[in-house]
Design a protein around this nucleic acid. Structure first.
Length: 570
RNA sequence: GGGCCUGUAGCUCAAUUGGUCAGAGCAGAGCGCUCAUAACGCUUUGGUUGGGGGUUCGAGUCCCUCCGGGCCUACCA
């Protein structure tokens, strides 16, 4: 038994996430966590809301609420959606927690003591009307290069030219539209990542098995131009983790907070500590996952994230932990994902384009979404959601191949033998062939899950389901029953056992349907099959079962067209 | 501008890292079955692997070039 620490990238607090966000980290990490638990490993699966930063303050202001209250509410909303999608976090924390504040301040202090923090005076644009410093992106104006009138302070979206906020003609606040802006001096802490470059470089080099998407981004940042740049880790905001605290080694940091990207990954640790608190456990309970001097040296730590998160997880966060010179557990494997597009374009919150998590659950049960998203997860390149593809996958894979198999077996048995596993007859060559094929495919399925090749795993799982239909066609119990009812009974006994096995193997992907299948088989035996032959003898003759409701209803053309229309955006 | 990824049957994807006639699923066609959600099974039609050039005994895979798609580029998170 291994110990596996799994973290999903933290969803940002300012609103409900769309399916692209879901598939980029939370969903695949959940499947991986469920699989590893099913295999008997000890798993700690952590996620949290990322609550600090300018967008949170703006969203709260827009909602007319204090930011703390807004975040508390949105955290609950996101937690509820996570439950709706059956995300099996051991803990869903908050980056604004006391634990994270403590840890973030502690790590910053350590970095300071180790000479890795520098105070830098910068000039930044301040908006009097908004009463805040504006990040470059929050300043808009006319592009000096192409004349586009909504260029952002960091880059013009129209001509793609890199800009400095002071380059803009007629600059204005993107928040209020105010033109009452001025450049002010402000002091910030910088993390001297450049001093850690060689250590980070060697560390990345040692990760031979990481996806190219992960390492190439890290390498680019390490070696591009002058190499890894120092990075500001504080901001002039109200909402966040205070930089000035008892024992802080810096003066003049009153009213400043740590940059959201500094404290967000630390919340992986913070949330594990929150988990311990919530369960009445002491510090050793979470430290054995995170401190290599306190038991974490045998932990395998796997992170899941979208590609936009890679630099922070390959460089900034490791720099924070390494620079502390304390024995923190570093990530062992980073699984990064590309983006999911929506029907020929991007998901867009502002344009109401695409399906968001709350809407998805209103329309269809979570298993439908889980199955489609996981079987199309953008592992190798960006992938695309289309309603036609979604409808075809659900109807064929879930309704026809799996759902209908359960239906035909249970209904046939009920009509010929009643709602109990039939007695009599014996297994023969046909059953052995099925055992052999499933054993082979199971080994492939497991190998794909170990390698976190989610798409390949779904293809193999589907093939395992299809074996059931092939077997039934070949064995033809409806014909055999007329001449040899005992043999027909054996066939159905075997098929009912297949249903139970499918429930066990499918659980990481479609947990609700898995539960429904186990309930129908009136069993709670869901041990991972070490031996397929034994697993298919679990339900004994005379064991009762029930015919379940339709496991997966088909999506009609009319329903598909309606949804297509509803989510196409403005 | 720079960097990275990507282009394989109508669609969604594979191809043991340079090695048999490039494979699956869906869609299409034909046959079979009738237990089942008009479901299932079997057979089958589709590809000069974006174009061109090169290296090699051998290229989807490596190199060059052109064309198309995408991402990142450090103050959004």
């Amino acid at each position: 038994m291994a110990r596996i620490l799994i973290t999903s990238a933290l969803p940002y607090i300012n609103g409900i996430k769309h399916l692209g966000n879901l598939v980029g980290s939370q969903l695949p990490s959940d499947t991986y966590a469920r699989y590893m638990r099913a295999r008997g490993h000890e798993v700690m699966y952590i996620c949290a809301t990322d609550e600090h930063g300018t967008p949170a303050e703006i969203a709260a202001a827009k909602a007319g609420k204090p930011v703390a209250e807004y975040c508390a509410e949105m955290h609950e909303v996101q937690a509820e959606l996570a439950r709706g999608f059956r995300l099996s976090f051991d803990f869903f924390g908050r980056s604004s927690s006391a634990r994270n504040r403590q840890l973030t301040q502690h790590l910053a202090k350590r970095l300071g003591e180790n000479g890795l923090i520098e105070v830098v005076t910068e000039k930044q644009v301040y908006s009097k009307a908004d009463g805040r410093f504006l990040p470059d992106r929050y300043i808009e104006g006319t592009c000096p290069n192409c004349g586009y009138d909504s260029a952002r302070g960091d880059q013009c979206e129209n001509c793609t030219k890199q800009l400095d906020p002071t380059d803009l003609i007629n600059p204005r606040s993107a928040i209020s539209g105010s033109t009452d802006l001025e450049v002010r001096e402000t002091k910030h802490l910088f993390l001297r990542q450049s001093k850690l470059r060689d250590r980070l470089d060697a560390w990345i080099d040692s990760k031979k098995d990481w996806p190219i998407l992960t390492t190439s981004i890290a390498k680019k940042w390490l070696h591009d131009g002058d190499g890894l740049q120092d990075r500001g880790i504080t901001r002039d905001l109200d909402w966040g983790i205070p930089v000035q605290f008892p024992g802080a080694p810096w003066e003049g940091m009153e009213g400043k907070v740590f940059y959201v990207w500094f404290d967000a990954p630390i919340e992986y640790i913070g949330a594990t500590a929150e988990w311990a608190d919530a369960n009445g456990l002491d510090d050793s309970a979470w430290e054995r996952w995170w401190r290599t001097d306190k038991g974490a040296d045998d932990v395998r730590y796997v992170q899941f994230m979208g590609k936009d998160n890679v630099p922070f997880h390959t460089l900034s966060f490791p720099a924070t932990l390494m620079g502390s010179e304390e024995p923190w557990k570093l990530v062992d494997y980073i699984k990064s994902f590309n983006y999911l597009n929506y029907d020929g374009g991007q998901f867009s919150t502002s344009k109401g384009r695409g399906v968001f998590m709350d809407q998805a659950l209103e329309i269809l049960p979570s298993d439908y979404w889980r199955w489609w998203l996981l079987s199309h997860v953008p592992e190798n390149s960006d992938s695309e959601f289309t309603w036609e593809n979604f409808q075809a996958s659900i109807n064929k894979d879930l309704a026809d191949v799996l759902g209908n198999f359960v239906s035909r077996v249970t209904k046939f048995c009920r009509s010929k033998f009643g709602e109990v596993v039939p007695e009599g007859g014996a297994y023969g060559a046909a059953e052995q062939a099925v055992i052999d094929e499933i054993s082979t495919r199971l080994a492939a399925y497991q190998a794909h899950m170990e390698a976190i090749e989610i798409r390949k795993a779904t293809a193999e799982l589907r093939a395992i389901w299809a074996v059931g239909n092939e077997y039934l066609q070949e064995a033809a119990p409806w014909a055999v029953f007329k001449t040899d009812p005992e043999r027909a009974g054996a066939i159905i006994r075997f098929a009912l056992n297949l249903i139970r096995l499918y429930a066990v193997l499918s659980e990481p992907f479609i947990p609700d349907a898995s539960r429904a299948m186990l309930d129908a088989m009136k069993t709670d035996v869901r041990d991972w099959p070490g031996d397929v032959s034994a697993a298919l003898a679990e339900l004994k003759p005379g064991h009762p079962f029930s015919v379940p409701e339709v496991l997966f209803a088909k999506i009609t053309d009319a329903a598909r067209e309606e949804m297509e229309e509803r989510f196409k955006g403005r």
